[in-house]
Design a protein around this nucleic acid. Structure first.
Lengths: 197, 197
DNA sequence: GTTACCAGACCGACTGGTCAGTCTAGCGCG
DNA sequence: CGCGCTAGACTGACCAGTCGGTCTGGTAAC
């Protein structure tokens, strides 16, 4: 069956790229991990770069879908911002290997890759920005430079997720409440203290 | 003069690595940029990796020195935290190429490099953490998980600086006040609003 | 002061290993 | 057969690192 070979190659690529990074990963590593062959890999994918980008696209799509769902399920700027935050962290947590490829291994690979990475993060950021603007319009939070605010959020999330993925260090249970509280406070959203079940 | 050759090689390496990244940069590129020779480069440095790491160490040292100075010049947790923030951003701004190597090009290069990078960021983070703890002890800010708080700060700063270095986008004049206000609010520091000269 | 020698900096053609990608030969199924 | 797919040996480019060699300046013996 063709689909199964293709799937095997994809998940082998995820494993290998996430562990070794783009340059250190050899196509033969992926072939071995997939219990497949060079021929099969090059039958299904045009080359190393495209295979790598396919993984990033896959992640982007997952992220996008989830965010859209989460946001659609809520009403009002601030609630949507919170929903997006939660959904984003959820996706990173569920697809850790892909997240590592996206957040770590796709950095510093030159223009082409960097642009793709930034484009995806930008969509995430712009989404947050849009709803922060809404929240301001709704009077939920005082006005501020929402473009920068969104980038601050993205940066903070990235750093913590990267660290968690790489070292397992700050466990999500410990991380989440503090992160959430800090991010909400950072935009001067009151009622940042309710939580704590 | 030998020193001048060595210096030329170092600054060529900074230029080339910051533009192309570690793997894409060829030793011959650095040789050409330095108007030198393969022999000279390998006379002064044991290899590509060590040359790259030398640059990162140089940046780390600059960062460390500046932070230490800035902090020593102030008294009290919160003032020191603010001084460190300012000093850190200053260093990134002054050594943009090195900063790009450190923040962008040194990511995703595998264990050895990653550890070094994280170690440096950790020192920065732990420094912030220490003084946040002080600020809490002084009663300047309410208690919180300072380890995570420091990472949030580092992440936010990284993201904005990376973007600025890569795209020139959010100009520091626009970026700084918002970033500053957000970071201070994130730890519930009152009087985050004085500013605006 | 000039000849002989040395050391350390620097040069660049060359080598050897490493991989991405190709090619030809199967294999099984309709 | 022919077509979709898989296998894996092979090719060729590329590049880090090497190595025999040059050049310059210093020193010391005569």
């Amino acid at each position: 069956m063709s689909e199964s070979t293709r799937e095997r190659i994809l998940s082998a690529a995820i494993t290998v790229f996430s562990q070794k990074g783009y340059h250190t990963a050899r196509m033969d590593d992926i072939v071995a991990e997939a219990h497949s062959s060079k021929g099969a890999v090059y039958f299904h994918f045009p080359g190393k770069e495209q295979l790598f980008l396919a993984l990033i696209d896959a992640f982007a799509e997952k992220l996008e879908t989830r965010l859209a769902e989460a946001i659609a399920a809520e009403q009002g700027g601030m609630r949507r911002v919170e929903a997006a935050l939660e959904a984003g962290l959820g996706v990173f947590g569920e697809y850790r290997q892909l997240a590592k490829i996206f957040l770590v291994q796709a950095v510093g690979l030159g223009q082409r890759f960097e642009e793709k990475r930034r484009a995806i993060l930008d969509r995430f950021a712009r989404l947050i920005q849009t709803h922060l603007d809404e929240a301001i319009a709704d009077g939920d939070i005082p006005p501020l430079d929402t473009e920068i605010a969104a980038l601050v959020w993205v940066g903070a999330i990235n750093e913590l997720v990267m660290r968690w993925i790489q070292t397992g260090q700050p466990a999500p249970e410990r991380l989440l409440p503090t992160l959430r509280a800090m991010l909400l406070r950072s935009i001067a959203f009151e009622a940042a203290e309710e939580e704590e079940a």
